[in-house]
Simulated assay, not measured.
Amino acid sequence: MSGYRHPRSSATDCVLSLFQMTNETLNIWTHFLPTWYFLWKLLSVVLLYSAWRDSYTWPLLIYLISICLYPLASTCAHTFSSMSARARHIGFFWDYGALSFYSLGSAVAYSHYAFPDRWIDSPFHRYFLPIAMGNSILCTGLACSSRFPESPRPRFSNALRMLAFAYPYLFDSIPLFYRVRPSRCLCCTNSSTNVLHVYHIGLAFLTGFLFDYIGHSHQLFHVCAILGSHTQMQALEEDMRMRRPWLLEKFPPVTFSSSVGPALLCLLISVSIICLFSSGAPRTRRATPREANHLHLTF
């Protein structure tokens, strides 16, 4: 009932609201602080593995870049969403684009490090990344389009947005679902990393369950998303290290066209989609200084 920022706040007011108790304070800090942690992790991996010389680490770097971008984009969207309706739309367009890039970054890393032993170089493995690229682009388009029917049809808008993010995640995670399934078969990947993958999957489903449906649970949604990404990161790095000799023997080496190229292409297309939707976002007249002061005093 209280603690909401003014819907026509200035950029300065939005930044200052980070240090006030508002409805967005936890949404902002629960993604702003992890951004710096993930950035530190990205830099440490670059230095630890000498990534500029070792193409095998490129998929991990793409993934780490994606988990730096999505909490940063979310932080900016939640921080400046109260400037205007147009600013809110555009901010969350970039948030959705970052999430779609995160889904692709996960797929690139899964393709090179996490596939079950018996699926390596199978038809599904060969087509996994191209399909994930299409899913990432589709995710951006669907999520952005979900904002336009938000006021007249909020349930349809939420369902469309959930579909935009749930479908790419479920597809990307097919190799993990196979790996962690209850089985006594020794012909599939069997390693301690599977426990981390189970934790990540559990947190991912909890994230979806909490998505604005239980009370004001968006903050809990943010927390579970970050914890899930952290566990996912640990699992992928362990898979990369433990399975390296076997993967280098059984699977073609990592190339630009199988890692960096798809990521750059999808990023370019997603940015184009975001710019297209941003051009159609509703425009509002900027308040004069006198109007802004009046609105601030009467809020």
Rank of each mutant, 00 (worst) to 15 (best):
G3M: 07
R5C: 11
P7E: 09
L16A: 06
L18I: 07
L33H: 03
P34W: 03
W40Y: 14
V45F: 07
L47G: 02
L48G: 04
Y49E: 14
D54M: 05
S55T: 13
P59Q: 07
L60P: 00
I62N: 05
Y63R: 03
L64V: 06
S66H: 07
Y70H: 11
L72W: 08
T75N: 11
C76E: 05
H78V: 08
F80W: 08
S84W: 02
A85D: 09
R88Q: 13
F92D: 01
F93I: 11
W94L: 14
L99N: 01
S100K: 02
S100Q: 03
V108Y: 00
A114N: 02
R118H: 15
R118I: 10
R118P: 00
P123V: 08
P123C: 10
Y127I: 06
F128G: 00
L129W: 03
N135I: 09
N135F: 15
S136Y: 02
L142T: 13
L142I: 15
L142P: 00
S145P: 01
S146Q: 11
F148M: 13
E150D: 14
S151Y: 05
P152I: 09
R153N: 11
R153G: 03
P154E: 07
N158E: 10
A159M: 14
R161N: 12
R161P: 00
R184M: 12
L186E: 11
C187Q: 14
C188I: 13
C188S: 14
T189C: 09
N194L: 13
H197W: 08
V198F: 06
L203A: 05
L203R: 03
A204I: 07
L206Y: 02
F211G: 00
F211L: 13
D212N: 13
D212A: 13
I214E: 10
C224V: 11
A225C: 14
S229P: 01
H230W: 14
H230A: 15
Q232T: 09
M233A: 10
A235C: 04
M240V: 09
R241M: 10
M242E: 13
R244F: 06
W246N: 08
W246A: 15
P252D: 03
S257Q: 07
P262N: 09
C266E: 01
I269K: 08
C275R: 14
G280Q: 13
G280P: 01
G280K: 12
R286F: 07
R286G: 02
A287D: 04
R290L: 10
E291N: 08
H294I: 11
H296V: 05
